[in-house]
Simulated assay, not measured.
Amino acid sequence: MLHEKRRVKFEEQKVQNSARLEAKVAKVAEAEALKEREPKSHQAWQNVTEKLNELRTELGKIGRTFGGQSDELWTRFKAVERWAYKERNNFYKDRKKNLKSALDVKLQIVEKAEALAQRTDFGAAAKEMKQLQQEWKDSGFAPKKATDELWARFRAAGNTFFDGMRGAQGEERAVRNVAYKKAQGTQSARQTVELARRKLAQMENNMGFFQFAKPDSPIVQDALNKVDQARRELEVAEKGFRDYQKAERAKTADSLAPSEDPGTPEA
C-alpha cells in the first residue's frame, strides 16, 4: 500500500516536473531570442536588461524542476545573462569612447570658428564658417552639458563673424555710394562744360554764314550777341567745374587728416 502511494506521488511529480520544464523551455527560448538582434542603443540595452530580469523572476515562479534537462535549461539561461553582461559593457565602453571622440570633434570645430571670427576676407571665410556649421551637425552626439558650453562658444563666434561681415558690407556700400555720388557730380560738371563748349563752337560756326553780310546788320549783331553769350556761359561752366574739383579735394584732405584725440587737453 505504501509502495503504491509512493509510486502515485512520484508519477504526479513527474507530470508536474514535465509541465514546469515545458514552461521553462519557453522562457529560456524567449531569453535566447534576445541575442538575435543585438541592441544598438542605450534604450535597447535597458529593455534587454529589464526583460532578462523579468524572465528570471518568471522562471523562479514556475518552481523547482529536476533532471538533466532542468540543469541544461539553467545553463542556457545563464549563458544569455553572461552574453548580455559582456556585450552591454562593451557597448557602454564604445559609447563612452565615441562620446569623447564627438566632443573632441566639436571642440576642434569651435576653435576653428573662433579663429574665423577674426578674419576679414569675408567671402572665403563665410564659406568656411558655413562648412563648420554642417560639420557641427554631423559631429554626433556628445554629453549635453559639455555640448551646450561648446555650442555657446560656437554661436558667439558665428555671431561675431557675421556681424563683422554685415558691418563691413554696410561700410563698403556707403563708400560706394559716396564714390558714385562724387562720380555723378564730376560727370555732371564735366557735361555742363562740354555742352557750353559745343554751344560756343556751334555759334562760332554759324558766323561763317554771315561772312558776306554787313557787320552792322541786325542778323549779324544777333549772331555776335549769341556767340558772346555762349562764351560767357562756357566761362561760368569752367569756373564751376574748377570750384567743384577744389571742393572735392578739400573733402578728401579733411577725411585723410588725423582726428584730434578728445582726451588730450588743449595747450
Score class of each variant (00 low, 15 high):
residue 57 T to K: 10
residue 57 T to P: 00
residue 58 E to F: 05
residue 58 E to N: 09
residue 60 G to M: 04
residue 60 G to P: 02
residue 60 G to A: 11
residue 63 G to R: 11
residue 63 G to Y: 09
residue 64 R to G: 09
residue 64 R to E: 01
residue 64 R to Q: 10
residue 65 T to Y: 01
residue 65 T to S: 10
residue 67 G to N: 05
residue 67 G to C: 03
residue 67 G to A: 05
residue 71 D to L: 10
residue 73 L to I: 12
residue 74 W to K: 06
residue 76 R to G: 06
residue 76 R to A: 08
residue 76 R to K: 07
residue 77 F to P: 01
residue 78 K to P: 06
residue 79 A to G: 01
residue 79 A to P: 01
residue 80 V to P: 11
residue 82 R to A: 10
residue 82 R to Q: 13
residue 83 W to T: 01
residue 85 Y to E: 07
residue 87 E to G: 00
residue 87 E to H: 12
residue 87 E to K: 08
residue 87 E to D: 14
residue 88 R to K: 11
residue 88 R to F: 02
residue 89 N to T: 06
residue 89 N to Q: 09
residue 90 N to D: 12
residue 90 N to S: 12
residue 92 Y to Q: 05
residue 92 Y to A: 05
residue 92 Y to D: 02
residue 94 D to E: 08
residue 94 D to N: 06
residue 95 R to G: 10
residue 97 K to S: 02
residue 98 N to M: 11
residue 98 N to H: 12
residue 98 N to K: 15
residue 100 K to F: 07
residue 100 K to W: 04
residue 100 K to Q: 08
residue 101 S to I: 03
residue 101 S to F: 08
residue 102 A to D: 06
residue 106 K to C: 00
residue 106 K to L: 01
residue 108 Q to V: 15
residue 109 I to A: 01
residue 110 V to G: 08
residue 111 E to K: 12
residue 112 K to F: 10
residue 112 K to L: 08
residue 112 K to G: 05
residue 113 A to L: 03
residue 113 A to H: 00
residue 116 L to A: 06
residue 116 L to R: 04
residue 117 A to M: 11
residue 118 Q to S: 13
residue 120 T to F: 01
residue 120 T to E: 09
residue 121 D to C: 05
residue 121 D to I: 15
residue 125 A to M: 02
residue 126 A to I: 11
residue 128 E to W: 02
residue 128 E to Q: 13
residue 128 E to S: 03
residue 129 M to L: 13
residue 131 Q to H: 13
residue 131 Q to S: 15
residue 132 L to S: 08
residue 133 Q to A: 15
residue 133 Q to G: 14
residue 134 Q to S: 08
residue 135 E to Y: 07
residue 136 W to F: 05
residue 141 F to D: 12
residue 143 P to V: 14
residue 143 P to A: 12
residue 146 A to T: 00
residue 147 T to H: 09
residue 147 T to D: 07
residue 148 D to C: 14
residue 148 D to V: 15
residue 149 E to C: 04
residue 150 L to F: 06
residue 152 A to Y: 09
residue 153 R to D: 11
residue 155 R to Y: 06
residue 155 R to D: 09
residue 155 R to A: 02
residue 156 A to F: 03
residue 157 A to K: 08
residue 159 N to K: 14
residue 161 F to E: 07
residue 163 D to T: 14
